[in-house]
Design a protein around this nucleic acid. Sequence first.
DNA 1: TCTCTATATGTGTAATATGCACATATTAAG
DNA 2: CTTAATATGTGCATATTACACATATAGAGA
Lengths: 165, 165
Amino acid sequence: MSIKNVQNTHINLRLRQLHGALLEIVGVMNRPQRDEAMVREAGISLDRALFPLLVLVERLGPIGIVELADRVGRDHTTVSRQIAKLESLGLVVRQESASDRRVRAVVVTKSGKVMTDRVDEARERIGQAVFATWDNQDFEDLVRLMRKFADDIKGHTSPDSEAIG
Amino acid sequence: MSIKNVQNTHINLRLRQLHGALLEIVGVMNRPQRDEAMVREAGISLDRALFPLLVLVERLGPIGIVELADRVGRDHTTVSRQIAKLESLGLVVRQESASDRRVRAVVVTKSGKVMTDRVDEARERIGQAVFATWDNQDFEDLVRLMRKFADDIKGHTSPDSEAIG
DNA sequence: TCTCTATATGTGTAATATGCACATATTAAG
DNA sequence: CTTAATATGTGCATATTACACATATAGAGA
C-alpha cells in the first residue's frame, strides 16, 4: 500500500467519524420536541414547521422567499405559505423592496423579536451549561472550525453538486 | 461590568457564532436535493424521507423502530411505515430479536448495503475535496471537537430538557 | 405466580405539509 | 423592445405525519 493510500485511508476514517458526529448533531437539531419546548416556554402556539423559519428570518432578514426556501430546502411555494401564516400571527411582516420591486422581504416584527429573544436566552443557558466543562482553547477552536466548515461545504454543495448523505 | 460578565459576553458571542454555523450546516444536510442526487447516482428510485432512514439503519442497525424514531424526531408510527416501505423495496429487513421478542430490529440487506456503499463513496469524494485545502491539524481538531460536541449535547437535550433553537 | 405498569410495534384515519402546474409582476440581457 | 430569467403567489392532488387505539412482551412488586 502506497503512502498516498495510507493517507487516504486515514482521511476516510476521519470523514466517517465526522459524518457520524454530524448525523447525531443534525438529529438533535431536527427534533421537533426541541422546537415545541421553546415555543411553549415563549407562551405562543406555533406550528412545528414555522418555528425554524422564524429563527432564520430573525437571523437573516430582510430576506426574500426564494432565498429562504433555498436555506430550508423546501419549495418556494411552501415557504410562501408558511411565511403568510407567520405574518397572520404577527410575528413577521413582508415589506416591499425599493431596489427590486419583485421581492417582498421578510423581517421579524417586535412581537416576533420578543419570541426569538427568549429562544436566544434559552439557547445561551444551554450553551453555557454544555461548554462549562470544556477547555477554553477547544471551545474557541470548535467555533472557528465549524464556521470554516460551514463556509466550505456551502461552496461544494451549492448548485447541482453531489450530496453528503 | 465585572470580569465574569465580560467572560459571559464573550461566550455568548461565540455561542451565537456557533449557532449560526450550525444552522448553515444543518441546512445543507437537510436539503432534499442532496438526497435525491445520491439516490439518482445509486440508480434507485427512493422516496425522499426513506433515504436518511436507510443511512441510519446501515450505521446503527440492528436497531428498533422506537429508537430510530427518536433519532429522526418523528413519531414511531411514521417510522414504522417508512421502514415497511424500505423492506418492501428489499433494502432492509426486520428480524426478530431473541433477547426481547417485542422488538423487530432493522438491518440493511445486501442490496441496501450496496446502495449505502455508493453513498459512502460519494461522500468520501466530496469530503476529500472539501478538506483538501485544510491544514491537517485543523481537520483533526474539527473531527475530535465535533465528536465531543455531539456527545455533550446529547446529554443536555435527551429527556424533557430544553431546546437549542 | 399474578397483576400492573412500561415498552415496542403496528393499523385506521384525519389533518397537515408539500410540490407541481400555472399565473403575474418585475428585472436583466440582447 | 423583445425575450429570457427571477421573485412571488394560488389551485390542487398527493405525500407525510401524528393521534387514537390495539396487540404483544417485558419487568417489577405483592
